[in-house]
Structures are given as structure tokens and as C-alpha cells.
Design a protein around this nucleic acid. Sequence first.
RNA 1: GACCCCGUAGCUCAGCAGGAUAGAGCGUAGGAUUCCUAAUCCUAAGGCCAUGAGUUCGAAUCUCAUCGGGGUCACCA
Length: 581
Amino acid sequence: MDIFADFAARVAAALKTLYPEASDELIARAVVEPPRDPGHGDLSSNAAMVIAKPLGKNPREIAAALAAQFRTDPDVDSVEVAGPGFLNFRLDAPVWHRVLKSVDLLGSAYGQSDLGKGAKVNVEYVSANPTGPMHVGHTRGAVFGDALASLLGYVGYDVTREYYINDAGGQVDILARSAFLRYREALGESIDIPAGYYPGDYLKPVGEQLADSYGRELLDMPEAEWLPKVKDLALRMMMDLIRTDLANLGVEHDVFFSEKTLHGQGGDIDLTLAWLREQGLVYQGRLDRPKGQVDDDYEDREQTLFRATDFGDDVDRALVKSDGSYTYFAADIAYHRNKYLRGFTHMINVFGADHSGYVSRLKAAVKAVSDGAAEVDVKIMQLVRLLKNGEPFKMSKRSGDLVLLSDVVEEVGVDATRFMLLYRRNEQAMDFDFALVKEHTRDNPVFYVQYAHARTCSVFRTAETELPALDLSPEELSRAPLELLVSPADIELIKAVAQWPRVVSAAALAHEPHRIAFYLYELAAAFHAFWAKGKDDRALRFVNPEDLKLTVARLALVGAVRQVLVNGLTVLGVSAPDELS
RNA sequence: GACCCCGUAGCUCAGCAGGAUAGAGCGUAGGAUUCCUAAUCCUAAGGCCAUGAGUUCGAAUCUCAUCGGGGUCACCA
């Protein structure tokens, strides 16, 4: 149960009874949340202040009237009006015991909801060019997209995880030519890799594979003939590489969408542009010379443009390149129309910081192709700076000067990589310090949280060895006398557990998985704090041979904490080990 | 020149669909271990929430301007 949502509904009902003239919309603005200062009670609502002005009433009077409604509520111990019109509730202990009970009943479903009502959401992330293995620059977006997709699924959205393969542009031709060099190398030639080609060793296996399959056959063909064959194989092998890298990071996709399939005569791009033309959104025109650094080969010319400015963009955008082929953006418009036609009205795109200038044109495109019916939320991942003991870090092992994703995972592990990248708002540029991430101290939130989980497991192990007569089966624990949990420490910890459903909903609505990570840290802190109290006061130990009933109740509490830690870590894709070695 | 992100404690960062006395970790200074993992906990000091204006009952949070830091700016992907 979500005690906050529960009371929000009760407050809304009370408002409706007292002030039938208040609109639902207005009432919906009233929230119930934990007060910043715990001295103010367990729950706090701003309902009176929100509703006062539109109704032309005094907020404290409204608050007093609301308070009167709650005096008879059996779950409410006390309710008072404070400050400018806050409504502060103190709840009876049995309410907290019911929360605990619900954790036991729901288990891994505690925190799940139907917030999303089964709505289809498309989350597009990674979408790295298929020209080599994943490097660190891709990691943050990969982890973020994966966690966000899990989070949305957790609260009842129908999520599709998608990877857009940029397999149609000029860079894949270069990939093919680079692979062709490796092919000649595999046949015994000594090669020079020109600037602008992909120099990485990871193309050697492609060359060898080509030599195996074709022998010397390709050498006699003109480029136009061998290029498609080489490209095909290179793309397949690069995508395998990428999939492996992603799998090692625990990142998955449901759909790999090939850009290539949009091209070609009568393809999606043709159809989309024809449709846009019908809408009068395409025209021939000139753009102002761009400010800032301009390429040497810039040439002012008439272009085929999309009226992005009609949809809030700063300038209209080119659809056709000087060589007559479609721009990346043209394909992307078609791609997003394709998403819309597949039924996605909610789209989320996870981009790197270098794509921030692309956001407004993409939003414009989505509005245009869906007639305003679909929306895209673009999450920009700010830069990650790799450090080791505070010094900039380079680890070029296998490929040029790029640090590979697989190097990072190998060095610090999946859990630490994922958690640390999620332990920051996506808009915030971050430092990723290898030395710190590998540390097993409080500096490192990953281990702090995992340690809390391991400790919950340890409590159960101890209970089993110290009190072998005690029945700790799930059945017995679900009959635990929770009413014995009345100490401030007990209630405090239950309150931390009670936050979970609220945190999940808020994080999902805001598309901000980092909130989960921060919550888990807080829950872990609350648990560690309780643990330490047992050092001073034997009555607060989880396992207490002098009071078996209380021990069972406490173990039920510990079990609930463990469950929530697991639920949260699962959403983030981080493991919850039973012990740390 | 324009656009996007950031500016909160010495450091790294939470808090932002407005809400009460602004939080955490690190670092600093103290303290806790016959007892469930001290990989932990407790206490203290530390702040003009970059600056200036505006919006209102109320602003770290919203708006505008300014100053710093990062990213981007036909055709590339």
C-alpha cells in the first residue's frame, strides 16, 4: 500500500464533500507528502493553501475544516493546522503495521502500480553507430535507458526498448572500406590505414572472416561490387560486438531498428516526405550561414527544407544532402513516424550531450508526423569524465584512444558501473573515478546499499543459528506480531519502507531513475542506523533470545527492508548479494 | 551571435510541476567494537542556495537579465 496516495485520496474526498464547487483539477493539485521536518508529523498536505485562493477563502479556515473531518479517522492519531495552512497528520502505529503487512503480501510487487495504465511507451537508447565496440561515452545512456525502461515497466507502462541502428550513412561505407583493408591484410598484404578510416583491431576478425568466405575473390571486383558484401558482414559482426558489450552491462533491447530499411524507392522516407509535402511542410529555400565554426566546404545553396519552425524549432531543417541523398534527419522523421504508426504516443529518446542541438528539431518532427498526438521526451546525458584518483584517465587497450565500455565493466564490475552512473541526475555532468568506484567504503554508495542488503540476510542467518527452535518460514513470518513494533526506531524504519511506492511513482513520472538510487541509499542508511542502535540497547537488536515474539516481528521488518532493497536494485539492474566477501 | 545543461557547505552532489528552521557523503574535530559483518554508527563545526530584479500569502525551486563553467550550431551521425 502507498500510504501517501491513500491519504491523498482521503484528502481529496474530504475537499469534495466540504467544497463541492472546487474543480477536480484544482483538487488534484493538493499533495500529501512527508514533511521536511519530521517534527511536523508523519504526513503533510498543502490542500488548504492550494484551494484557498481560487475559492476566495482563508487557508487556515479550510485547513481547520479539513482537520475536523479527520478527527474521526481511526488511522489518524492527531491532525493539526500549522503555519500558513498546512495540515499535519500523525498516524496511529497500526497504520505502519499495515504497511509492513502489505510488503509481506506483495513481495516483489510492492511498489508496482498501474500508474502507466498499460500505455505504450517507446524508449530508444544507445543507438550507437555500428562501427565498432561500445566505448565509455555510450555507457551512461545505455544504463540510464535500461533503468528508465525497467522503471516504467514497473509502474504499469507497456515498454518497448529500442535500438536504432545507423546503418545507412557514409560512416558504414568507411567501415566497409576499413574492413576491406583488413581483408587484404588477412590475405598477406601489408596495409596502411588512411586517416579517417577505422583503425581498431576489432576489424581484424572481419577481415579474416572475409578471407575465409571469399578467398581472393573480392580483390578482383570493383568497389561497387564488393562494398555491399563487405558492409553486410562488417555490420553484422559489429552489431554482435555491440550486443555482447551491452549484455555484459546487463542492457537489453526488444527491437533493433535498421535505418537502412527506411531508405530506398517507395520506402518510409519517401512516403513520409510525400506526406509532409501534402501538409505543406516541405519547401525549397535557403538557410542563413551558420554562426560559429563553419566547415571549409560550406556552400550557400538552395535546399529542401522541413518547416521545423512551425513546430517551435529555431530554423527550418535540411532534408536532402548536396549529393541528393537524404539527410540523417529525413530518415529520423520517417523513423519517428514509424514509431507513431506502431502505436507509440509516448516516446523517450536518450541522447548524448553532443545531440542537445538536435532536440528541438526532433520534437518538431514528432509533432508534425503525429499531428500533435504524440510526444517525445528527450533525455540528454551530460558528459562523463573518467578519472583515476582525480587524474584524467585513458585506458586505450584495444582500440585507438577510446576507453571501451568492456574495459570499464572489467575494471569495476557491472553493479558499480550501473549504480554510479545512475547516482546522478542525467543533466549533471559527472566524474567517474575508478579508484573510488572500486572502494568498499561509505564513499561508495553501491557497496553501502549492497552491504545493507547483505546485513539483512546476515540477520536471518544469525537467527537460524542462534535460535534454531524458531520457525522462520515465510508462513510464520507473515503471522508475525507486528503490533509489537512500537519503538521509535521500529516506526522510523517502517516509515522509510513506506516511502518506496511514492518514490517509484514520482521517479517514473519524472523519467528520473536517479531518484531510486538515492532512495535506496536512504533506506540503507535507516537500516544501518537501526542496526547500530542494537549495539547500545539490547532491546533494539533484531535477534533477541530474551524475547522470541519480538524477534519474529523484527525479522518480519528486516524481511520487508530486504524486499524493498531487492525491488529497488532490480529496477536499477544492480544485484543484491547475500553476503559481501 | 544563437540554443541546451550546470552554478547549493572546503570537495562531490541531492532537494526544483513553489511550502514550514536548505540535506547527504567525503574532508575536518571528537566519540562508539566482551554483543546480529566497524565494509557500520553517533556528535560537532561548516551556507547571502552565483548576482540582480520580478511574479505572490510564501522562491534554492517559476520568469527575465547579468556573470562564470561545460556542450552544440548547413550538408556528418
